[in-house]
Structures are given as structure tokens and as C-alpha cells.
């Protein structure tokens, strides 16, 4: 109770001080962010504790040929992310400082994660050799589409008090149903696609889609 009183006094003092100095308060900020996506956002400061943010973020990334082992077989994995979302967020700074909670929702225009698995080594049936290309590929696709709630924590004001401000944010989107998974396969491993149900079942608990970004904002 004592701490809360001190906090309220400080907040009131700070507000009165800014009114008395007559300095125009900066309520708008534009920012670029980089992390699990590259994007822009706009924030509006309601008061010291609350602000609103509209954010657009995109992530396209491809990583090829990293080693993985499934079912005792050495595989090469190609992974590709194609994520594209618009977020509406509400920032709560309980201390009126840089630390804030971020709540809101993201609309995923596109959110594909494609994984392609191929055999690292050739397969031999009798004297017939199946090269990696002959063996075929396994294609896994995960999709989170639609409107997903978001929660995160951040350091750095959504609207810097003066000019530039730097911040970092960590959060997650939440999909109660988990991603929609699909599985396909070609070549002599084509029958692997019969395990799509197992894949879907295994990923249904994968309800969180993490978000991390470094943010550089400019207030005006």
C-alpha cells in the first residue's frame, strides 16, 4: 500500500511537472523491428501507462541441408518460413517506465512453415540403387491462419519520451487448435504420407507461436 502511494505520487508529480514546463508531449511513434520478422509499427501514447500499437511483420526465410535423424535414418532438412501478419496491440506500462506488457491479437495473412526432408544417403534394394532423388521427399507443412491472441513483455517505451528509443519484445501468439499440419511424400517413401494423422495429432499441442524482436522507434 505504501509502495502504491509512492508510485501514484511520483506519477502525479511527473504529470504536473510536464504541464508546468509547457513542453509538448510526444504521443506518436514510428518504429522498425527485426526478429522473428521484419516490419514497421505505429504507436500512440494514451498516457504514461497505456499506449496502442499497430504492427505489420513479415518473415521469409529458408535454410537448406541441415542434418536431422528420424526413425534411425539420416536426413537432410530444408526449412522455409513464410509468415506475414498484422497485429493490433495494447501496451500496459505498470510503472510508467520502459517495462510494459503487450496484449492484443494478430491476423495472419500468411503463415506457412514448410519442411522438406530427403535421404542423405542412397538406398539399395538388391542391386538396384536409389539415389537420394530416387528415394523421394517428405513434405511437411504447418499453417496458423486467422486471428490469434497475443501476449508479450517488452523493455523500451512504445513511444519514446524524446526522439529515438530502443526496445526488445518477447511474446507469443496462441492458437487453441494448434497448427494445421499436412504431410506428403514421393518416391519409394510415398507411403509415409499415411502418417499425416499422427503428425496432426502430435502437433495439436503446439499452440504457441513465439515472437521476438528488437525495435528502434522514433517519437514525434
Amino acid at each position: 500500500m505504501k509502495k502504491t502511494m509512492i508510485l501514484l505520487i511520483c506519477l502525479c508529480t511527473s504529470y504536473l511537472f510536464s504541464q508546468q514546463t509547457g513542453e509538448k508531449e510526444k504521443k506518436h511513434a514510428l518504429a522498425v523491428h527485426l526478429g522473428t520478422g521484419l516490419g514497421l509499427d505505429y504507436s500512440y501514447k494514451i498516457n504514461e501507462y497505456f499506449s496502442a500499437t499497430a504492427r505489420y511483420s513479415i518473415l521469409k526465410y529458408k535454410q537448406e541441408d541441415f542434418d536431422y535423424e528420424i526413425d534411425g535414418k539420416d536426413l537432410l532438412v530444408d526449412g522455409e518460413f513464410d509468415i506475414n501478419h498484422i497485429d493490433a496491440l495494447f501496451n500496459i506500462a505498470p510503472f510508467g517506465k520502459a517495462f510494459r506488457f503487450v496484449l492484443g491479437a494478430g491476423y495472419f495473412v500468411k503463415n506457412d512453415v514448410d519442411v522438406t526432408l530427403s535421404f542423405k544417403d542412397e538406398v539399395k534394394i538388391g542391386e538396384v540403387v536409389f539415389t537420394s532423388d530416387d528415394v523421394g521427399n517428405i513434405f511437411i507443412n504447418a499453417q496458423w491462419e486467422g486471428l490469434l491472441p497475443y501476449a508479450g513483455i517488452a523493455f523500451g517505451r512504445a513511444v519514446p519520451t524524446s526522439g529515438f528509443g530502443f526496445g526488445v519484445e518477447l511474446g507469443t501468439y496462441y492458437d487453441a487448435d494448434g497448427p494445421s499440419m499436412s504431410l506428403d511424400a514421393t518416391g519409394i517413401i510415398e507411403q509415409t504420407k499415411n502418417q499425416e494423422a499422427l503428425l496432426q495429432d502430435s502437433f495439436k499441442e503446439n499452440k504457441f507461436l513465439p515472437y521476438l524482436s528488437l525495435r528502434l522507434a522514433y517519437s514525434f
Binding site: 528420424i70 526413425d71 535414418k73 512453415v113 538406398v123 534394394i125 528415394v135 517428405i138 504447418a142 507469443t172 519409394i188 517413401i189 510415398e190 507411403q191 509415409t192 499415411n194 502418417q195 499422427l198 503428425l199 495429432d201 502430435s202 502437433f203 499441442e205 503446439n206 499452440k207 504457441f208 507461436l209 513465439p210
Partner: peptide, 20 residues
């Protein structure tokens, strides 16, 4: 974030089926 949530069931049961 993705993989940590994958059920152990997937790792244990997923099999690559070869039609020889």
C-alpha cells in the same frame, strides 16, 4: 518454440515407410 511442444509420440512413432 515449435519443436518443444511436439508430443513425444511423434518422435517415437513417426516412421519413414519404404516400399522396396
Amino acid at each position: 518454440g515449435q519443436v518443444s511442444c511436439i508430443d513425444k509420440k511423434f518422435q517415437d512413432e513417426f516412421k519413414i515407410s519404404i516400399t522396396p
